[in-house]
Measured scan of single mutants.
Amino acid sequence: MGFKLLSKLLVYLTASIMAIASPLAFSVDSSGEYPTVSEIPVGEVRLYQIADGVWSHIATQSFDGAVYPSNGLIVRDGDELLLIDTAWGAKNTAALLAEIEKQIGLPVTRAVSTHFHDDRVGGVDVLRAAGVATYASPSTRRLAEVEGNEIPTHSLEGLSSSGDAVRFGPVELFYPGAAHSTDNLIVYVPSASVLYGGCAIYELSRTSAGNVADADLAEWPTSIERIQQHYPEAQFVIPGHGLPGGLDLLKHTTNVVKAHTNRSVVE
Rank of each mutant, 00 (worst) to 15 (best):
G123Q: 03
S139N: 15
A129L: 14
S160F: 15
A19F: 15
K258A: 10
Y135H: 14
D183C: 00
T114R: 00
Q235L: 05
L82V: 13
A213C: 14
H252Q: 06
H154D: 10
D214H: 09
E150T: 08
D64T: 13
P41T: 07
D29K: 10
S31C: 14
W220L: 01
S193M: 09
D248L: 07
I50H: 15
S155W: 09
Q49S: 13
E33C: 14
H241F: 00
S16D: 13
S113M: 15
S70L: 03
S7T: 07
V11W: 13
S113I: 15
L204E: 07
Y196M: 06
L159P: 11
T14C: 12
Y12W: 14
P170M: 09
Y202E: 09
P107N: 15
V265G: 14
A234N: 03
S264I: 15
S30T: 09
L159N: 01
E44H: 15
E203P: 12
L127S: 01
S160H: 10
G32I: 14
A59S: 08
N211Y: 07
A19S: 08
D79H: 15
V189L: 08
L185W: 01
E99M: 09
P190M: 05
Y48D: 11
V171Y: 01
S70I: 02
A51D: 14
T153E: 12
P244S: 06
D125N: 11
M18F: 05
L5A: 07
G240Q: 01
H57A: 02
D52Q: 06
D118E: 10
A178Y: 06
A59R: 03
N184E: 01
V67H: 15
K8D: 12
D125L: 12
L243G: 07
I151D: 02
G198A: 05
S137Y: 04
I100F: 03
W88R: 00
G78T: 14
V28K: 12
A25K: 13
V187K: 00
L6Q: 06
R142H: 11
R120W: 02
R46W: 10
T207N: 15
Q228F: 04
A19L: 11
V256C: 04
V121S: 04
Q228V: 13
E157Q: 13
T222P: 08
Y34I: 14
A129I: 15
D64G: 09
S30G: 10
L195K: 00
L24F: 08
G246P: 06
G169M: 02
I238V: 06
Q235D: 10
E44W: 11
P41V: 13
M1C: 03
M18D: 09
A259R: 10
H115D: 00
G43W: 07
A192W: 06
T140D: 02
V67D: 08
S223M: 02
S161K: 12
P41Q: 06
E172L: 06
K8P: 03
P239A: 05
L13A: 08
S16C: 11
R46P: 04
G105H: 15
H154Q: 15
N92M: 04
V11R: 05
V166E: 11
V126P: 03
S155L: 12
V171F: 02
A213Q: 08
V121Y: 03
L9K: 06
S181C: 01
A200T: 10
A133K: 15
R226L: 08
S113A: 15
R46A: 13
G169T: 03
G65R: 09
G169R: 04
K8T: 09
I100N: 02
G148T: 13
Q229M: 13
T140K: 04
K102R: 11
F3E: 06
S70Y: 04
N255C: 06
D214T: 14
L82Q: 05
Q235S: 09
S22N: 10
D248A: 08
W220S: 00
P138S: 14
E233D: 12
S31I: 05
S7E: 13
T153C: 09
G163P: 04
G2A: 09
E99S: 15
A234D: 00
G131R: 08
F116D: 03
W88D: 00
I50F: 08
L24T: 09
K258C: 09
I84K: 02
A259G: 11
G197E: 01
G242A: 03
V126E: 06
P176H: 02
Y202R: 11
M18E: 05
M1K: 04
A234E: 02
G131S: 09
L185M: 09
I224H: 01
G240A: 03
T254C: 14
G32F: 12
A95M: 15
L81E: 01
E172Y: 06
S31N: 07
L83D: 02
A192V: 07
N71P: 01
Q49H: 14
S193F: 08
I201E: 01
G122C: 10
H115T: 00
V265C: 06
T222R: 10
L97C: 03
E267T: 15
K8S: 13
S22K: 09
A59Q: 15
I238L: 07
F63L: 10
D183P: 00
S27Y: 06
I104R: 00
P107R: 15
A111V: 09
D77T: 08
H57E: 01
P239Q: 01
V266N: 06
V112C: 03
Q235V: 06
A234L: 12
I58R: 09
I224P: 00
A234S: 09
T253W: 01
T222I: 10
L97H: 02
R120G: 12
L156C: 02
Q228E: 12
E80K: 15
A94K: 09
S16I: 15
D119G: 02
G245Y: 03
S191R: 07
E233Y: 12
A51T: 08
T93I: 02
G240F: 02
E172A: 05
V75G: 02
F116L: 03
G2L: 12
D29P: 12
A133C: 09
G2V: 12
G148Q: 15
K4M: 07
V121L: 05
V237Q: 00
Q61C: 06
T93G: 00
S27A: 07
T222H: 11
S137I: 07
H57W: 01
V42M: 09
F168L: 09
F116Y: 10
I20Q: 07
V75Y: 02
L83W: 01
L6H: 10
A129Y: 15
P176M: 04
V146Y: 14
S191W: 08
A111M: 14
D52Y: 06
S162N: 09
A259T: 11
A165F: 15
P221G: 12
N92E: 05
P152G: 04
P152T: 10
L5W: 12
D248Q: 11
T153I: 15
G197R: 01
H230G: 11
D79W: 12
A59K: 04
Y48A: 12
A129W: 11
V187I: 08
I17H: 15
D248G: 08
A21M: 15
F26C: 11
V237R: 01
S113P: 04
F26A: 08
Y12S: 12
E33K: 14
T93Q: 01
G78E: 08
C199F: 01
A59D: 07
P176Y: 00
V42Q: 13
F63R: 14
A111L: 14
S162G: 10
V112G: 03
S160R: 14
T134V: 13
G245N: 05
R46G: 12
S70A: 06
A165K: 13
Y231L: 04
E80F: 06
S160N: 13
T207P: 07
L185V: 08
R46K: 06
P69L: 11
A200D: 02
T86E: 01
T93D: 00
Q235R: 06
D29T: 14
H57T: 06
T109C: 05
G78I: 06
